[in-house]
Amino acid sequence: MPSKATPQRALKGARILPQWVSTTALLLPAYGWLSLADFLPLLTMFLFSFMNKTPMGKAPIEFTLRHYRAFIDQPYLVKIAANTLLMGLWTTLTCAVLGFLAALALVRCTTGARRETLLILILLPFWTNGLVRVFSWTMVLRENGFLDNLWHWIAPTAGSIAILYSREAIVIGLVHGYLPYRIITCYIALVTIDDAIIGAAQSLGARWWVILTKILIPLAAPGLISGAVLTFVPVIGSFMEPRILGGKVGVTMGTVIEDQFTQAFNWPLGASLSFTLLAVTLAIFATFSGILRRGTGGTA
């Protein structure tokens, strides 16, 4: 698709500068910043991951691959990894369903100023501090917290519904963090679908579930999938939500890695675990981008 737009765009800019100049100009600041703030540190970390211990003090350093065998040497890591993937899956799935439905409701059931207000209200929590947001959930979910009190007020004789320090609590916190982003990406995908297309389908005899499954979801699919990947990837690396909301059950790859840096002071292991995680993520991304290309390529 971009290749089609290029000739017209190029025409406009052609008089002043060749296109590669402007492309470079657009990309340079971001990738310059990324190399300074991310790639350089990552490269250092990559080196660390092959060292036998944290490079501090005078002790000689040897290079080794043993940290990359962690999953074999320490089988409990496999279980943690599985839990982490499960957490990512649940969060992504919940976000996908809620985000899509909310976006659908925005597009089909609201108009004008009300819709704009709702969009802003949905986006606002996204800009609050992540740590603060997660911490607020502890106050909502814990025993004698907001929800628990509300529940006791409604049903005084029933037991507690506090779910702090559980997997559900982690997923709730993560969903809360990523839902606004997912609603907006789904909204953008849905709002571009012409009403007349839905009208045409209805006139041909389609009821709402046919419209949903045959028209709306296929047309929004690229947005849905890229949104899912961009939720899943950071979620499986997260450690703040698992730690604060999960307590003892909140051991994930993210927290294990964090522990290596802040508690165990085993940077090489932490680094090698992160790069293993990155490899898994890239594999997932590669799979989905393949599907995406086939899905949106059309006649190509």
């Binding site: 990324l34 703030a37 991310d38 540190p41 990552l42 970390m45 961009l230 990837v233 950071p234 499986i236 690396g237 997260s238 450690f239 993210g254 890695i257 964090e258 840096f261 802040t262 932490g270 680094a271 992160s274 790069f275 995680l277 990155l278 993520t281 890239l282």
Partner: peptide, 9 residues
Amino acid sequence: PIAIPWLIT
């Protein structure tokens, strides 16, 4: 940068 916990960088 998205996938690796920001703590590490």
